[in-house]
Nucleic acid binder design. Sequence first.
RNA 1: GGGGGCGUAGCUCAAUUGGUUAGAGUACUGGACUGUCGAUCCAGUGGUUGCGGGUUCGAGUCCCGUCGCCCUCGCCA
Length: 587
Amino acid sequence: MRTHTCGELRAEHEGQTVTVCGWVDTYRDHSGVLFVDLRDRYGKTQVVFAPEAGGELLAAAKLLRGEDVVAVTGTVAGRPEGTVNPKLPTGAIEVRAGQLAVLNKSRTPPFHPTSKDLPGEDIRLKHRYLDLRRPAMQQTLLLRHRIVKVMRDYFDELGFLDVETPMLGRSTPEGARDYLVPSRVQPGTFYALPQSPQLYKQILMIAGYDRYVQIARCFRDEDLRADRQPEFTQLDLEMSFVEADDVMGVIDGLMARLAKEFLGREIALPLPRMTYDEAMERFGHDAPDLRFGMEIVDLTDLAREANFQVFRNAAEGGGRVRGINAKGAADRYSRKLIDELTRFVCEDFGARGLAWFKVGAEGKLASPIAKNFSDDSLARIAGRMEAEPGDLLLMVADRFDVTCKALHALRKRLAAELKLYEPGVMHFSWVVEFPMFERDDETGGWAAMHHPFTAPRPQDAERLGTAPQQCRAQAYDLVINGVEAGGGTIRIHDSTLQSQVFGLLGIDETTARDRFGFLLDALQYGAPPHGGIALGLDRVVTLFGGGESIRDVIAFPKTQRATDMMTGAPGPVDPRQLKELGLSVPR
RNA sequence: GGGGGCGUAGCUCAAUUGGUUAGAGUACUGGACUGUCGAUCCAGUGGUUGCGGGUUCGAGUCCCGUCGCCCUCGCCA
C-alpha cells in the first residue's frame, strides 16, 4: 500500500512518485493551498494539496481532520526556498499530492497525540490507542524492544537456553498474594499464576539445562505503586555449577552492554558491591541510591553523654542516634520546612521526632535543642558529621530500624529537593549477604527474607540451628539509582538442608511435602549446585528511559486499583461461567 | 486498611474574602486567506463545577459522605 514511511523521505528522493500512509497530525488550510503533516511511528512528512492537482482533490483534502487515516500518492519535491523546516528530519522535502484515499475517518479525538498539553493519565489510559500514538510512548516501547533484543542476544551468545514455564501453576501461600484461576475440570481447585518461575527454573537446573533464561510474565496480587504492577515482566535466569560471583558477573556484563548501547557509556566492572549490613549502616536501606553522598553518621556514643533526654534514652535503651548532613542546605530550609520534614518522618516512618541543627558562621550549631548540649558535645557532633558553615544537620533517635527508614526517606527526599544528582546519571551496584531470615510480625517466627530456597553462606550453615538471625544468605540485589532492579540467590541443592530451612520457617514436613514435595524429590536425584537472578524488566526500561513510572513502559498498564481503564477489566462474568467452575459469589 | 493531593467545557487550566449571567487557550462548527509548519484572522456551538447531602439570603469556593485518578505507609518470599 505504501512505498515509504512518513519518516524516511529526504532530498535524495526528489522527483520520485511515492505513496505514504499515516494519520493526519495537523492541517493548515490556506484556501488555495493546503498542508497536511502526515504522521506514523517513523516520523512526519508534509503533504501539499495544491490547485494544480485539481479542485476535486483540494476539496477532498479540506475535509481532513486530525487522526484521519489516509494514503497519499504524489511526487517528492524539494521545498521552495525559505520554506524548509529544519525542525523535521523530512523538512527539506514535501509530497505534492496527486491522489488522496481516506482509509478511515476519525471521530474527533479526546486529545491529540502530539498536543503539547498531556492529558491526565486516566484519560490517556482510557484511550490508550491514542496515547500510544504519542512519539514519546512509541520511543519508549522501541527502547523496551531494543533492550530485550540486547538481552536475548547477550544470553544467546553465552549459551543460555530460553525455556518457557507454565502460567498455570500451584499456589504457594508464602510470599505475595496469588492470582487464582479456578479449575473447571476439578471443581473447587485452583491454579495460581506465577509470582515468578522460581521452582520451574530450579527443576530445569536439576534436569541439566545449566543455563536458562526467560523473559517471564509474573503476577502478584498486592497493592500497586508507581514501580509495581500486578503483572510485570522479569528477565529470569538460572545457572548450574556457579557461585554468586558467577551470576553477578553475567549481569555485570549485561549492564555494561546496556550502558554502552543505550547510554553510550563504558562502565567499570565488576560493579561495586556492598554488604547488606554496610548498606543499612551507611544509607539506611538495602537499595541505596549511590548517585550522591549524604551518608548516615552514627552519633549513638556521643548521644549517651549528652544531657538531651531524647538522645540519651534512645542510646541507653538499645536504640541508635544517627543523622545526615545536608551540605549547604541551612538557608534552604526554614523553620516551617523543617517542621514539614518532621511531620514527614514521624507520620510516614514512625519516628518520634527530628532533631536538627543549623551550622552557623563559626561552625557553631544552632537549634532550639542546642541548650541541652554542652559546647564540647556540640563540637564533637559537628566534627563527627563534618559540619561546615551553612550545613543543615538532621538526626533521628530511635530503634535502629526506625532510624533507617526515617533517614533513608529524608536522604531520598532531600537529594531530590537539593538536586544532588544529575538527571541522566545512572549508578549500578550490588548489595550482597542479606540476612537469611527476618522476624514475621504476624506469627513472631522467622520468615525468609528472599525466598525459602535461598542457600546460606557455607560458613553460616551450621548457625541455622543456633543463631538464625546471624545467618547471611548467598543473595545479591542489583541496585540502580536507589531502585532494586533485580535480585537473586544461590539456591539450596541439598534436600536435607532444604528441609532444615523449611523447619526454621515453620513449614512442617507434611506441609513441605504437600507443597514442595516435587522439589524435595528432585533435589534427591542429582541436583547440581545452582543459582540465578531475576531483573525487573519494567524497572530496568524505566531507568534507562529516564522515566518515573513503570506504567509508561508497559503498553497496557493497570491503575492503582488494578483496573484496565480501556477494557474495564476486571469485570463481572456470566453466571453460567461461574456455574461451570463450581463457584458462587456471595452478594 | 491508614495518610496526602487532585477532580470546573472534548482536552489543558483560571475564577479575589462565600457574591451578579462560571472564563481563557485549544479542539470542534461556519466563514476569510495560494507557502504554511503550534498557520493567521472573524464568528459560533459547547458546563449536572465527579456524584449525594448539609450550612448560608447566596456555594465551583465552607462542612459531611461517596466515587474516580495519582503519590505514599502497611503490604510486595
